[in-house]
Design a protein around this nucleic acid. Structure first.
Lengths: 240, 240
DNA sequence: CCCCATTGTTGCGCCAACGCAAAGTTCCGC
DNA sequence: GCGGAACTTTGCGTTGGCGCAACAATGGGG
C-alpha cells in the first residue's frame, strides 16, 4: 500500500511536533480518497466510521433541521481536519460533509483514533486546540447573529471566506470554490433573496463582482469597513 | 494547605477514569476559592492565569461586543469546567465569567496544565470530549438562531436551563439561580422587551410563573411542544 | 423602615427582512 | 444546439420584533 509523503502533511496543525518517523507510522493507517464535486463525504447521523484531513479541494459541513432547513456549519479548507466525531466522543456524525469541489482527503478509520492517541498523546492536545479554535469561531458567530444585522453578517462571512479560501485574481480576491447565494444565506441565517439583494447592491457599488456560484471581492477594505461599522453614530454614509 | 476530598470530584467528566491516588496528585495543585454573588471570576481579555471547576453555585460566561452589547455564552453548572483557555491554546480568556450566585470553585494555575496533561494524558482526552460537547451545543444554538423565531428560541433556552439547573418545586421546575429577562435576551439574541412580552404571555397562559430574577416552569411539556412546534410542516422540500 | 436603584411590564410606531411571485440568466447533459 | 434544471434578480405586500417611552413593582442598603 502506497503511503502519503510525510512532507505533505508535516506542517498541519494536527501533526505539529511530529517527526518523519512518527508521521509515517500514522500515515500508514490512512488511505487517500477522492470525492467528485457535489458528492457527499459522509452524512449527518451515519456512524462515524472515519475521520479526515482535507488535502485538496473544499468541503462544506451542514446540519439539517427537522423541518428540512439546512444550515452551513463551516467550510473546510485544505489542511484542516474534519469528521472527528469519534475523537470528541460522538458515535455518529453530527453534520453532513459534502465536497463542493473535486477534493482529495486522507481518511483514517475511527477505530484507529484511540490507538494513535495512546501512542502519540500530542494528537489529543493538537486536536484539543483545533476544536478549541472552532468553538471560538462558533461563539463569534453566535455573537454576530445576536447583535448584528444581516448586511454586516454577510460582509463578515465573505471576508472570512476570502481569508480562508481566497485566491488573488486580477480585480481582487476570488472565493476559491463554487458558492451560491443560498449557501451564503445558510451561513448567515438569512434567506436567499435577502443575500441576493445585498450582493446586487454591493455589485452596483463596485464592492464585489458576482456571477453564478462565484464571488470576487473587488474592494475588501470597503467591505471591512462595512462589516465593522460601529452602528452607534459616526455620521457615515448609507443608502445612495 | 488542606486539599479537596477526592470523592467530591471523582465523578466529574474531567476526572473520568482517575483513581484516588491520581486525584490527590491533581488536587494538590488546586485551591478552592469562594466568589460572592455578582462578583467576577475573570474578565474577557485578561491573561488566562487559571482554569476552574465549579463546585457549588452558578457562573455566567459572557462576551462583550466592541459596541458594548453583551451576549451570554453559557451558564456553568456545578461539576463543569470553565476558563480552560490555556488548554485550547488561548493566552487570554475569551469571555468574562461572573458568579451569578455565591459560588465555590477549584482553581488550578494554568501553568500546571501542561505538566498535568503530560502526566495524565486522560485529562486531554476528557477535556477534548467536554469541549466537543460544547461545540455541539453551540452549533445547535447557531442552527436555532438561523431557523427559529424568537418565541421558540426562548422556549428552548428555558427548557435547557431547567434541564441543566432546574430544581423541583411545588408547582413545577424552578431555575436554580437568579436570572433576569435581560439575561434570557442575551442568551437568545433578542431584547429585554421582547422576552418580557413573551414571558408575560406565557404566564397569563399558566405555562410559567415569573418573578424578579426568578422563573418557574409550570407546564414544561407545553413549553416543549411550543419549542418543537413544526409550524411549516412539510418534511421534504429542498435540494442542495 | 424608607429610599432608590434595579428589574419588569406594556403601549405605540416603524422598518429590516421575510415570503411570495415571476422573470431573467447560466450551465449542463443529451 | 436544444431543452430543462439550477441559479439569480427584483418587485411588492406583510410582519415579527425592535426602539422608544413611561410606568410599576421589588428588594437591598443605609
Amino acid at each position: 500500500m502506497a503511503t502519503v509523503d510525510p512532507s505533505l502533511v508535516a506542517h498541519l496543525p494536527l501533526f505539529a511536533g511530529f517527526g518523519t518517523e512518527e508521521l509515517n507510522d500514522i500515515l500508514r493507517e490512512a488511505r487517500s480518497v477522492r470525492f467528485a464535486r457535489n458528492s457527499p463525504v459522509f452524512e449527518e447521523g451515519q456512524d462515524a466510521h472515519s475521520f479526515f484531513v482535507l488535502l485538496h479541494g473544499h468541503v462544506r459541513a451542514t446540519k439539517t433541521t427537522p423541518a428540512g432547513e439546512q444550515v452551513v456549519v463551516r467550510y473546510v479548507a485544505p489542511g484542516e481536519t474534519f469528521g472527528v466525531a469519534m475523537a470528541i466522543g460522538l458515535p455518529r456524525y453530527p453534520a453532513t460533509a459534502t465536497a463542493v469541489d473535486d477534493s482529495v482527503v486522507l481518511a483514517w478509520p475511527s477505530t484507529t483514533w484511540p490507538r494513535l492517541v495512546a501512542k502519540f498523546p500530542a494528537l489529543a492536545t493538537n486536536t484539543l486546540q483545533t476544536i478549541g479554535s472552532r468553538l471560538q469561531e462558533t461563539h463569534t458567530r453566535v455573537v454576530e447573529m445576536s447583535t448584528q444585522q444581516v448586511e454586516r453578517r454577510v460582509a463578515h462571512a465573505l471576508l472570512r471566506l476570502a481569508k480562508q479560501s481566497g485566491r488573488k485574481v486580477e480585480h481582487g480576491i476570488e472565493i476559491d470554490f463554487p458558492i451560491s447565494r443560498q449557501d451564503i444565506a445558510q451561513m448567515t441565517g438569512t434567506t436567499l433573496h435577502t443575500v441576493s439583494r445585498i450582493l446586487s447592491g454591493w455589485e452596483s457599488r463596485g464592492l464585489i463582482e458576482g456571477g453564478r456560484q462565484r464571488i470576487v471581492l473587488r474592494e475588501p477594505h470597503k467591505l471591512f469597513v462595512l462589516a465593522e461599522a460601529t452602528s452607534g453614530e459616526d455620521g457615515s454614509l448609507e443608502r445612495p
